[in-house]
C-alpha cells in the first residue's frame, strides 16, 4: 500500500537522482551531498554491528581504510573499472572481518571495543609504515575529474546499505541479531546462534564500510594512504549513529544529515566547532535519550498523530 511515508521516500529518491541535471545542482551542493552520503553509509554500516547486535566496534575505520586503499590501487594503479575496484574493495574488507572476527568476537563488551580499537590502530600504523607517506596525485584522472559519477556512486552505495538495513530490520536474521543485543543468554536459549549472527553482522558491516571507503577513494583522489585508516572515521560514525538513533535504520541517516549541516553552517567562521556540539549532544543522548533523534521524533509523532490514526501496522 502506498502511504504518505513511502510516497515521501520515493519522491526524495527521485529528487536525489535528478538533482545533478537540475539548474541548482551545482558542484558545491553535489560535493556536500557526496560527503553526506559517505558519512551516512559509513554510519549505517557501523550500525549493523553496533546498533543491531550491540557490539561496539571502535576500529570500524580500518574497514573504511581497507576499502579505500584497495579500490584506489586497483582503480588508479591497475586501471580497473571503478565499479569492479569498488566491489573488490568491499569484499577484501569483508574477508578481513571474517579473519579477525573469530578471535575478536570472542571478546565481550568493552573488551571487544578496546580490542577493535587496538586492531585498527595496528592496521593504521602498518599501512603508514609499509606504504610510502607520499600521495601520488593522479594527473590524468584529475584533469577529467567529473563530479557526477562520484555523486551517483556514493548515492548507490548509500542506497545499497540502507536497503540491506531495512531488510535486516524486518527479517528473521535481523530479529536474531537484536535478540543477541538484548540478552545473549536468552537469545541462545531461543535457539539463536549468537556467534553466527554476530559474525554475519560484522562481515556485512565491514563490507559496507569498505564500499563507503571505496566511494571516498573515488571522490577524494589525493590523500595519504593511511589517512582513511584514522580513528576519526570511527569516531564520526559512532557519534552520528548515536545522535541519530542507534539500532534504527533512519538513525544514522538523520544523524549524518544533522552532522553535515551543522559542520557546514559553522565551518565558515569556526572550524570544527561542530565536533564540540556533537560531542555534547552525544553524551547527552547516551545519558538522557538512548534512542537518539529517532526516539524524539517518535515521541513527537505520537503526540501529533491522534491515537489510532497511525499509518503503521
Amino acid at each position: 500500500m502506498l502511504n504518505w511515508r513511502t510516497g515521501a521516500i520515493l519522491l526524495l529518491v527521485v529528487a536525489l537522482i535528478a538533482l545533478p541535471q537540475l539548474p541548482f545542482g551545482e558542484k558545491d551542493l553535489l560535493t556536500l551531498l557526496i560527503s553526506l552520503f559517505i558519512l551516512a553509509a559509513l554510519s549505517s554500516s557501523w550500525n549493523i554491528l553496533g546498533g543491531f547486535v550491540g557490539h561496539i566496534n571502535l576500529g570500524h575505520g580500518a574497514f573504511f581504510g581497507i576499502g579505500s586503499l584497495v579500490t584506489r590501487s586497483l582503480w588508479l594503479d591497475q586501471g580497473w573499472h571503478i565499479l569492479a575496484a569498488l566491489a573488490v574493495g568491499g569484499v577484501v574488507a569483508a574477508i578481513v572481518a571474517l579473519i579477525v572476527g573469530a578471535p575478536a568476537l570472542r571478546l565481550r563488551g568493552t573488551y571487544f571495543a578496546i580490542g577493535t580499537l587496538a586492531l585498527a590502530e595496528a592496521m593504521r600504523l602498518t599501512v603508514g609504515n609499509v606504504l610510502p607517506r607520499v600521495s601520488r596525485l593522479p594527473g590524468p584522472e584529475l584533469r577529467v575529474y567529473d563530479i557526477e559519477p562520484r555523486y551517483y556512486l556514493a548515492l548507490v552505495v548509500l542506497a545499497l546499505i540502507v536497503g540491506v538495513s531495512v531488510w535486516l530490520s524486518r527479517s528473521r536474521i535481523g530479529l536474531g541479531m537484536m535478540a543477541v543485543r538484548e540478552d545473549e543468554e536468552a537469545a541462545r536459549s531461543l535457539g539463536v546462534n549468537v556467534f553466527l549472527h554476530s559474525m554475519l553482522a560484522f562481515v556485512l558491516s565491514a563490507f559496507f564500510a569498505g564500499l563507503a571507503g571505496g566511494a571516498f577513494a573515488f571522490f577524494h583522489v589525493g590523500y595519504y594512504p593511511n589517512y582513511t585508516f584514522g580513528p576519526v572515521w570511527t569516531f564520526d560514525a559512532v557519534i552520528v549513529t548515536y545522535v541519530g538513533g542507534v539500532g534504527t535504520v533512519a538513525g544514522p541517516l538523520l544523524g549524518a544529515i544533522f552532522f553535515v549541516l551543522i559542520r557546514d553552517v559553522l565551518a565558515a567562521n569556526l572550524v570544527n566547532i561542530h565536533l564540540i556540539i556533537f560531542g555534547i549532544l552525544f553524551i547527552a543522548i547516551v545519558l538522557l535519550l538512548p534512542g537518539g533523534f529517532v526516539e524524539l521524533l517518535k515521541r513527537r509523532g505520537q503526540r501529533l498523530i491522534p491515537a489510532g490514526a497511525s499509518t503503521e501496522h
Binding site: 569556526l270 566547532i273 565536533l275 555534547i280 552525544f282
Partner: peptide, 22 residues
Amino acid sequence: RIKNSLLIGFGLTLILQTLATH
C-alpha cells in the same frame, strides 16, 4: 556501566580535543 562510560569517554575525547585545538 562499562559500555556507557566508554561512550561518554568517547564524547569527552572529542570535546576536549576540539576545545584544545580552538
